[in-house]
Design a protein around this nucleic acid. Structure first.
Length: 285
DNA sequence: CCCCAGGTGTCAG
DNA sequence: CTGACACATGGG
């Protein structure tokens, strides 16, 4: 167990905003699995308490604690809407995910719910990943998923996504697709390369670029982002998803990926508030 | 039994 | 190039 001082960091926002799928919070402590090792972590004010075999350097890299949020915020304050979100969710940071787990996670995201995505990832890890400790499993390597039968992946509740996950695992395990190498490419080239994979379109490619490949100018546009962008920015009213991403890059600039995360978190919380309201209204009747 | 969920591939027009 | 539709699975 060790601690480290942090500034402009909010652990809870960072892990709750929907960018990662394998973290859980109990009693103020978050626990997750990164690079095959368990991390337990908690925050009190500007101090982070870490219980993990991972080094402090790994933790700092994973949570992007070296990003200068002050200057990123300054570059994003283009309007009152986003500016309000930056203040409301101050300290929310992008996470530097592992490319392979990130790619598979978002392959599972198409036409799916967060809950089902989390279950599929947990099932795959239990079936094909190395056991770390009681009930804890590493995310399976490409070779491990490449060895899986599609029927076994179906049993992990991947649904129609089983085929593309297995095919992608085969390409990455066989060295035919150099996922790690994409980090060296420009954003546009990395995105194009990802889209050559079956099951990867513009949205999933942008997620991998942003969450795992350090392409902070990526702006994934899903149905939620499309909705909130059209609500906040009249220029987006008539635009399609791809054009909304281009608009965001031009409007917010090179750190628009950070803007996307705040907008997504807000839209997610708004949806949850509406659902809670609907429940309480139903209880009233 | 309807609809929807961090989309994408396919196939008419 | 554009729009409609299917796709497994779980939940409202």
């Amino acid at each position: 167990m060790y601690s480290l001082k942090v500034a402009d960091f909010n652990l809870h926002h960072t892990l709750s905003c929907g960018q990662v799928f394998r973290w859980d919070c109990t009693g103020g402590w978050w626990s997750g699995i990164v690079s095959g090792k368990v991390i337990r972590i908690a925050q009190e004010d500007d101090e982070l308490f870490v219980d993990s075999p991972h080094s402090e350097a790994l933790i700092r890299s994973y949570f992007r604690l070296d990003d200068d949020l002050g200057s990123i915020y300054a570059s994003l304050r283009r309007d009152a809407k986003l500016s309000g979100l930056l203040d409301m969710y101050r300290g929310l940071r992008l996470i530097r995910q592992e490319p392979w787990e990130c790619l598979v996670s978002y392959l599972c995201s198409s036409n799916n719910t967060i809950r089902n995505i989390r279950n599929a990832i947990r099932n795959m890890s239990m079936c094909f990943g190395a056991q770390i400790s009681d009930g804890k499993y590493a995310f399976p390597a490409p070779e491990e998923l490449a060895r899986a039968e599609c029927s076994e992946l179906r049993e992990c509740r991947l649904g129609f996504r089983a085929d593309v996950v297995r095919a992608t695992a085969g390409l990455v395990a066989g060295g035919e697709f150099d996922l790690e190498g994409l980090r060296e490419l420009r954003y546009e080239d990395a995105k194009e390369a990802l889209q050559s994979l079956k099951g990867v379109g513009p949205k999933i490619a942008d997620c991998v670029c942003l969450f795992a490949l350090d392409k902070l100018e990526a702006f994934p546009v899903d149905v939620h982002i499309e909705r909130i962008m059209k609500e906040y920015y009249s220029a987006c009213r008539e635009l399609k998803k791809d054009a909304i991403g281009d608009f965001a890059r031009g409007y917010f600039g090179g750190y628009c990926g950070y803007a996307q995360e705040y907008l997504y978190f807000e839209e997610m919380k708004k949806g949850k508030r509406e659902a809670d309201t609907a429940i309480s209204l139903a209880e009233d009747t």
